[in-house]
Design a protein around this nucleic acid. Structure first.
Lengths: 394, 394
DNA sequence: GCTGTTAGTAAGTTACCGTAACTAACGCGG
DNA sequence: CCGCGTTAGTTACGGTAACTTACTAACAGC
């Protein structure tokens, strides 16, 4: 490592610590940061000064806590920069602008059947929303734009390879977005919506390791190790949807047999119960419970998930599972079934209890996750951002 | 990070780069190290000088390669320190002493049925072997002693919780080793033998990500991400032996049903074919082929492994699988069967080919891995080792 | 022998962080 | 109400690691 990078590293460590502290517990002081980062007080003071000057951190009013001089609480600055999340989903296009503190500066959403229009129209609409959000926020410097798409994305150029729920194949998403004046000169990245959803969960559980399972039209997921999202060779580590839970079992839409999604995805559950496709994902379980015994429905979903989870736990040796999407509302019902199945199959439980928890996430985790992902450059390299922002405003 | 740690970090980076370069390709020069580590030439020169002075690196004779001044090749020093690996297996106790270059300075092995004697006797024998190896190597400063045990180990105090193949339960292995004069004052750690085996494979594939499967009495394994062994919450991430490949299937020794080990472990295969337990692990497949069609045997093993591998690949999104232990000699036969099973079940193959490879590892990977693990402190903190070694010799 | 090229060294500078000692601002107890 | 202990934060200074620039060393090819 070069000595120049040392400062950047420490600056980043301080800013991250500052953000996690003020989101999980209370604001933190310079002295507190010094303890956490193991840097000395003068060093922290100097770096914090730089962050405050650059509009990345804010001092609050001195706060007394018992004896001693009151601390000056530090928080991530509000309203000084803009990180933009975009979401293109089957039934809506949305744009969210947040600042470094995570506060929402603007939220624009347009409901429409994306499948009913061309991909180009949807992308143009998205670009339009970005323009409105930028205007709402008062033309703050933009860190990055991250787009959430329910499909597979080429890691090199942000091409959407395939997004079945949008009826998209080979759509040059990022390329077309960049062509719009609203996004000219910005850094734009595209990511799978499931992988972005988990970022909001990582915010809630800093530094933890867990398996994330999200039920939507399919079953998405991710693996988080020590607070870092695992990518894998092609960027879909933790996509549990096509884990085989029954060799030679039911045929899945992917053509294989016995996949998890062949049993507990929205489409599989709906079709096997003979329900119409007008039914909303979040109402699915309630609707199924009308046709059959609710315990039976929950049992079936829980056992299928349990098998997939058990194998994942065996391979990864983790102890926490977080249920999200349409699984979150029924997490408490599912928990005993999943637990029983996991304990029957997973070796890991011998070492201690497995925790199956409900995600208490945002309304739209993919959109929020995208916006949060768009903040990353600032947290990873505050110094670089400071010089960049300086050039942008000058 | 503190500025004091910067030097240690760079020293470590240089030493590691030096070791990987001289093991994979040819020796490397100061200028080459500067390019790889992105440090400047003067910085590298200074740090290399420190390594050479401390007996961690060696200069070779100048070597001309085309135009320009010939480079001075640098290699890890040989014969200046001792890292000790111990192995306690069902039929032998072995000790291996290597230096920083990986050269074997001494190898002592005693064949005996460890189950036939008490745990204490075996540990005493191991300590004795350590003494001999230290004498063989000429009383060099010892970095660390790492013990490979086929069982579960308490991470805090090196107690063996259970080692079925040794008939051990609750054996204070590290504690008793430390009580011997041959190991007085040394740093001693115990680790599972499968997890140590993979270290030799990591040496062969620096920086790669892969799944490692080792067939011995059970099916052990590990997950390697970017050259780093994944640990998991309890240190057994990648233990594929108890992955469920057939819900409600054959009963395993662990009490669960349908585990991989219930199908393709040494004991499972041997017992189902009605063979005696005198048969060696490496001869098992040949012996099975006498009772049945060889293709049938290979097919059965391959399909079972394939299911477990497919699920692991789905979860981890990796592309390389390395077969080791008794699986290595038959890897070429297994490959088509595993490939076919994996391609039928794994989603990851859609993005590219899955490579199923044979480990061309050492004769005794666990022992070599243990010795290599005992080198780690030097690579991780060369500066700390230098001052420590200075104290030891003074 | 000249030139271009690559390896390595030397001297001086920059810059980051740590140490030590200070001031600031509080609560508390006499 | 005034010191005293305590915690927060700053100032001044020094050490040290790495970078910059400029050099020498040693080769190949013409």
């Amino acid at each position: 490592m070069q000595s120049t990078h040392l400062r950047e590293h420490n600056l980043s460590a301080i800013l991250i610590e500052l953000a996690t502290a003020s989101s999980t517990s209370s604001p933190i002081s310079r002295a507190g940061l010094a303890k956490r980062t193991r840097l000395t007080k003068p060093t922290v003071s100097k770096l914090v000064e730089e962050l405050v000057d650059a509009g990345l951190a804010e001092e609050g009013a001195p706060l007394s806590a018992g004896a001693g001089r009151p601390m000056v609480p530090l928080t991530p600055a509000r309203g000084t920069l803009l990180a933009i999340g975009l979401e293109i989903a089957a039934d809506h296009v949305a744009c969210l602008g947040i600042d470094l503190s995570g506060d929402v500066l603007s939220h624009r959403i347009e409901y429409r059947k994306v499948t009913a229009t061309s991909a180009e129209e949807s992308i143009d609409l998205a670009a339009e929303l970005v323009g409105k959000v930028r205007a709402d926020a008062g033309d703050l410097p933009v860190v990055e734009v991250v787009v959430a798409v329910p499909g597979r994305i080429a890691p090199d150029d942000g091409r959407v390879l395939s997004a079945p729920n949008l009826d998209w194949t080979e759509v040059p998403l990022v390329g077309r977005l960049l062509a719009h004046p609203e996004l000219a000169g910005l850094s734009v990245r595209a990511q799978n919506d499931n992988r972005l959803s988990v970022l909001t969960e990582i915010d809630q559980r800093p530094g933890e390791s867990f398996i994330y399972l999200r039920g939507s039209t399919g079953i998405g997921g991710a693996v988080v190790l020590d607070g870092a999202l695992m990518t894998g060779a092609h960027g879909w580590a933790g996509e549990f949807g096509h884990t085989v839970i029954e060799p030679g079992g039911a045929t899945c839409r992917c053509g294989r047999q016995g996949c998890l999604e062949a049993y507990v995805s929205y489409h599989a559950l709906r079709e096997r119960a003979g329900l119409s496709d007008d039914i909303l994902i979040e109402d699915l379980v309630d609707a199924l419970a009308l046709t059959r015994d609710r315990a039976e429905v929950i049992g079936m979903i829980g056992r299928s998930l349990g098998l997939a989870i058990a194998n994942a736990l065996n391979v990864l040796d983790l102890t926490t599972v977080v249920l999200s999407g349409y699984l979150a509302p029924i997490a408490d019902e599912l928990e005993p079934v999943i637990r029983e199945t996991v304990e029957r199959h997973a070796l890991a439980v011998e070492a201690g209890p497995v925790r199956i928890e409900r995600s208490d996430g945002q309304v739209d985790p993919a959109l929020h996750g995208a916006a949060r992902a768009a903040l990353q450059p600032v947290f990873n390299a505050p110094g670089a951002w400071i010089t960049r922002a300086h050039h942008l405003t000058a």
